[in-house]
Design a binder for these strands. Structure first.
Length: 669
RNA sequence: GCCUUUGUAGCUUAACGGAUAGAGCUUCGGCCUCCGAAGCCGAAAAUGCGGGUUCGAUUCCCGCCAAAGGCGCCA
């Protein structure tokens, strides 16, 4: 609709002699300004040397001349355009059938109101998809919905792309904290939004499983948590523990190792040695897996304790798996899956790429290291291979991008969901990859802001972290309190299901409603808030809608039969009240909001929409009765039918909106 | 020193250069003998400072102040 209006205005201003301006049409914040609004008259004011109001009035009159809202007059349109008898303009102007009112507002806006029939047509469309899904399901519940059904009108204009979204990337042996939670919430929603507008998306996760942080952790294990400092004893003793307990142990070991690294010179030297051993272990692991190893033999760097090679290998490989097993439980909890897990350990041949790049003159040697000199490109200078011969994150990234661009056919884009501290890193690696011919302008660093504590900074070294799962558990506790007070009777299993889904929703929504780049000042109370602009509020509204619909069923309304849908369009003699109109118009905006959220990578746009819709529905619900024949409210049947349709459509859109945010709905809560 | 990002009610925040800066939390006052009160209605409260561009600036440009991140051997 928006695009169609832009086309109409574009054609109109061409007839006014303007060819190089693309009119803008937007959905006004305030519904009293219509469903769509254009500022085209104000843009033209200077060019035409007339007042914006006059221009707006002229445009309005030209549009009126087409007889909008009346199909019969549309064919006459071509006379508006001089000298183009067989022009396709009639098609463009056909959109005006759906407009019932055009107004000019100071200082020169042209506002459009949609005609009721077109709103109703959309409502029917929503319900038809809802029914079609319901009919294929054997239960009363609507199964997870295919969003695409509601979106083709706006989405099919974009060329579909193949896009890789890389997100989550926790490091093994380290804590999974609320920053990762935000990363996953954001990435998951971006994936779903891109899919909803027609793109093919590949979900991947890049995890750091080599490096100093692991050397510190292993050192901590061998020093403090292992009988006689034997790796095998440690593994045997703890093998039967739960994934949570295992990673907790790793976290403690990491803290201990970090402390030793800073305070004890001998420990520091040992940890550095361990780091080489980990690289050597990774190479050995790659050989086992049949991956091509890099040309560097890391064992030659080890100064002492060659006897621990086997120990470190087993310890690294097993504890690495502990972390991965634990991460898997979290991904499952959050409803996230990945097609491919990448690891730093498989990117060690970045050293070889870096060395070739030196020959090509793209990277250079300096003080024993291989660096990229950023000055000619106004970028930072960064180290790719350190003077010890170990690849840094940068060199590994070169190897990674080679793999990523080769494994899934031709990719149009790779989106890296990563924090702001890596902006310089990505600018440099993107540039080097461009110079190497790996990619050109195909990658995007999608920055998500840090999650900071209101007081103090998160640091897994000092142990001052808010763990992801801890937060979800806190939210669950709060929900159990509400459930205990509630009158609804649930079994233990049902309670747990409600608490789990509501808790995840609360946490995810609290991250997603803030714009992606914005830092979040973490506040427990805010994250587990169930009132107002929150995930549970939307879920509650959905559950409320479903409750009404269940009641309608028991009271023998026929709305839930597909045949009742056409009835909606026939309701023309019923004057809709203000609240009904507000909900109806909001529903209509859904596809365009999804498109906007996808194109801007901004789930918060969708959060705002979903909240507005829920809020408008709740206002309507409180003021008017949908069924309400219980006491003395007597009403024409078709009013109830319309309101049930509105309720059903609201439920459907809320469900789909939440799905795109990665949040599940509950039929009861 | 250089680069980047961010400053909006007491707190957390929204607003492709548009209309009266929109919410939530908190506070205060109302609404369950009617479909779910995790709800609804009402009140109070904000664009860091100074310039500029524009019909119009929270948004773009310049300067200042403040915070965060980054800038050859961490990831």
């Amino acid at each position: 609709m928006k695009q169609a209006l832009i086309k109409v205005l574009e054609h109109l201003i061409v007839s006014m002699g303007i060819t190089d301006v693309t009119p803008q049409v937007e959905i006004p914040d305030d519904l009293s300004h219509g469903d769509y609004s254009s500022n085209v008259a104000m843009i033209l004011a200077k060019r035409l040397k007339k007042s914006p109001l006059v221009i707006a009035q002229e445009i309005k009159e030209k549009l009126q001349a087409t007889g909008y809202g009346q199909q019969a007059k549309i064919p006459n349109l071509n006379t508006v355009q001089s000298g183009q008898k067989q022009s396709p303009h009639g098609n463009y102007f056909a959109v005006l059938q759906d407009i019932e009112k055009i107004e000019v507002a100071s200082p020169g806006f042209i506002n459009f109101w949609l005609a009721l029939p077109s709103l109703n047509r959309y409502l029917s469309g929503v319900l038809t998809t809802a029914y079609s899904v319901k009919r294929t399901a054997d239960s009363d519940e609507i199964e997870s919905t295919e969003v695409k059904n509601i979106l083709p009108a706006t989405s099919n204009k974009l060329p579909a792309q193949k896009i890789m979204v890389e997100f989550a990337h926790p490091n093994t042996h380290k804590a999974f904290h609320i920053g990762h939670l935000r990363n996953i919430s954001t990435g998951e929603s971006i994936v779903r939004l891109l899919e909803a507008v027609g793109h093919k998306v590949i979900r991947v996760n890049y995890q750091g499983d080599v490096g100093m942080h692991i050397a510190k952790c292993l050192y901590g294990i061998l020093q403090a948590f292992s009988a006689q400092g034997k790796a095998l004893n440690f593994l045997d003793e703890n093998e039967s523990k739960t994934p949570e307990e295992k990673v907790e142990l790793l976290g403690k070991a990491y803290a201990a190792g970090s402390k030793a690294f800073e305070e004890d010179e001998r420990a520091k030297a040992t940890i550095k040695d361990y780091n080489f051993l980990i690289y050597a272990s990774a190479q050995r692991f790659n050989k086992e897996r049949g991956l091509t190893p890099s040309s560097t033999d890391y064992l030659k760097f080890i100064k002492s304790r060659k006897d621990v090679v086997d120990q470190i290998f087993k310890l690294w490989k097993n504890t690495r798996q502990w972390s991965l097993d634990y991460f898997a439980t979290i991904y499952k909890r959050l409803g996230t899956t990945y097609q491919r897990y990448y690891f730093e350990s498989e990117c060690l041949n970045g050293v070889d790429i870096a060395q070739e790049s030196v020959k090509k003159g793209i990277l250079s040697k300096s003080e024993g290291a291989i660096i990229f000199n950023g000055k000619p490109f106004a970028l930072d200078t960064r180290v790719f291979v350190n003077s010890l011969g170990l690849p840094t994150y940068e060199a590994k990234e070169l190897a990674l991008s080679q793999i990523e661009f080769s494994e899934f056919g031709k990719l149009d884009r790779i989106i890296h969901v990563v924090g702001p501290e890596q902006a310089s890193f990505f600018q440099v690696t993107f540039k080097v990859e461009e110079l190497l011919g790996i990619q050109k302008n195909q990658q995007l660093h999608l920055v998500y802001g840090w999650v900071k504590l209101k007081h103090g900074k998160m640091s897994s070294r000092s142990g001052n972290v808010v763990l992801g799962e801890w937060l979800i558990e806190e939210a669950k506790k709060a929900i159990y309190e509400i459930l205990d007070k509630s009158k609804s009777k649930y079994s233990k299993a049902e309670q747990n299901d409600v608490a789990e889904k509501t808790a995840v929703a609360a946490v995810k929504y609290s991250f997603l409603k803030v714009s992606t780049k914005q830092e979040i000042a973490f506040d427990l109370e805010e994250s587990v808030n169930f009132n107002g602009d929150s995930g549970p509020y939307i879920q509650y509204t959905y559950a409320r809608c479903k409750s009404v619909l269940r009641n309608a069923n028991t009271q023998n309304y026929e709305l839930r039969q597909p045949k009742a849908v056409p009835l909606l369009v026939e309701i023309t003699n019923y004057e809709l009240n203000a609240e009904e109109k507000q909900v109806l118009r909001k529903l209509y905006q859904f596809p365009e909001i999804v498109l906007q959220a996808a194109n801007n990578y901004s789930p918060n746009t969708l959060c705002e929409y979903v909240y507005d819709l829920a809020s408008l529905y709740n206002t309507f619900y409180n003021k008017h009765t949908v069924l309400g024949e219980k006491k003395n409210v007597k009403r024409e049947n078709d009013v109830s039918h319309f309101r049930l349709a509105l309720t059903s459509a609201t439920a459907e859109i809320l469900k789909q909106g939440l799905y795109l945010l990665g949040i599940e709905t509950l039929e009861r809560m």
